[in-house]
Design a binder for these strands. Structure first.
Length: 345
RNA sequence: UCGACAACAUUACU
């Protein structure tokens, strides 16, 4: 059972929840080993990722029926599954039934309530939590940011410093940095973005730490979306390490700014460092459209499946229809809609 | 220490 569970957890870590579930069913069919409460954690995890509440609920029922122990972790992960699926009544019921809810339990509820029942209710959970750690503060701050309350998020940050007794230098974690930067991106608040950037520099968040690529990417995106495409490019060039998301953010930025040629040049340099993915092609195709690079866009669209092994999605077709339509080639655009192998929406 | 749980960056048209 440990082997099966290890493998299931592996799949979950690599964003393959379907495989994880498949393994669970194979394990049941095998009949020689019985899932235990740790196995169920992986099952709940996979269900949460897929939003598959019915399989998740069946897992929950299975635990009750077979008398598997509801350890804190098992309860938490089933709560997490319900919360991810928007079934907050079930999640809350799990919490009530727990004999010793811990800070993870509360944070799971906090995240779920903030998402499905609004900020006010989330704040109420936050205030009622018997114990708060950095995760809890981060969830609450991110919820404010998500709802567009940047100023309130900032004051919560100040409060966090107060409670931690650290008035001067708090090192914000990469989650807080990313969520605040993306709020700057959507609101176009370059001043707040710069302030966060200076914090990143001061705390050397780009040089070390878990999410350094994520923070760098969020900065590139923030500068690009705030109209500072050249600053974004400097950030991008100076990053010591990048991944496909970083490249996508930079390419999208150039695309949005109508820098089609520069975008294509950058794209041609990409594959030495990162493998282009489906998002990359949405970015470059829309960039071609905005810069009137019809032929180039068509070539890329052809290469997407042939040279990169990517299955074109409806988004890619939408870009192509836009590319042709924007160039005034209405007949071809309409023909593409009619002939595309995916059902047009 | 290691079979398990919570927050997080890029994605079309307008």
């Amino acid at each position: 059972v440990v082997d099966w569970t290890t493998l299931m957890a592996c799949y979950a870590r690599n964003d393959l929840p379907r495989e994880s579930l498949r393994l669970f069913h194979a394990m049941e069919g095998d009949g020689l080993v019985r899932p235990d409460e740790v196995t169920m954690v992986s099952l709940f995890n996979a269900c949460a990722q897929l939003g598959d509440a019915s399989t998740g609920a069946r897992g929950h029922a299975y635990m009750v029926k077979t008398g598997l122990p509801f350890t804190a972790t098992a309860s938490n992960s089933s709560m997490y599954m319900y919360a991810k699926c928007g079934m907050m009544e079930d999640a809350r019921r799990m919490l009530r039934e727990m004999t010793h809810p811990n800070v993870v339990s509360w944070t799971t509820i906090l995240a779920g309530v903030s998402k499905w029942e609004g900020l006010r209710n989330g704040r109420q959970v936050f205030d009622e939590m018997p114990e708060k750690n950095e995760f809890a503060w981060t969830v609450m701050i991110a919820a404010y940011v998500e709802s567009g309350f940047l100023k309130e998020a900032m004051s919560l940050l100040a409060e966090m410093m107060f409670f931690s007794g650290d008035f001067g230098f708090v090192t914000l974690n990469h989650v807080t940095l990313c969520s605040m930067l993306s709020a700057c991106s959507v609101s176009g608040d370059v001043n707040m973005g710069r302030w966060i950037h200076s914090h990143v520099v001061k705390t050397e968040a780009l040089a070390k730490g878990d999410g350094r690529i994520m923070v760098g990417t969020a900065l590139v995106d923030m500068y690009a979306k705030c109209g500072r495409i050249d600053t974004a490019r400097v950030m991008f060039n100076e990053m010591p390490e990048r991944n496909v998301v970083t490249w996508n953010a930079m390419l999208s930025g150039l695309a949005m700014h109508g820098r089609g040629r520069a975008m294509l040049k950058l794209f041609s340099q990409m594959d030495v460092e990162a493998q282009p993915d489906d998002v990359t092609f949405v970015a470059v195709l829309s960039g071609c459209s905005h810069s009137g690079l019809v032929g180039e866009g068509q070539q890329l669209f052809a290469a997407l499946g042939l040279n990169y092994g990517i299955v074109p999605t409806i988004e890619h077709y939408a870009c192509m229809v836009d590319l042709l339509g924007r160039a005034g080639r209405m007949e071809e655009a309409e023909a593409l809609v009619r002939e595309m192998p995916i059902r047009p929406n």
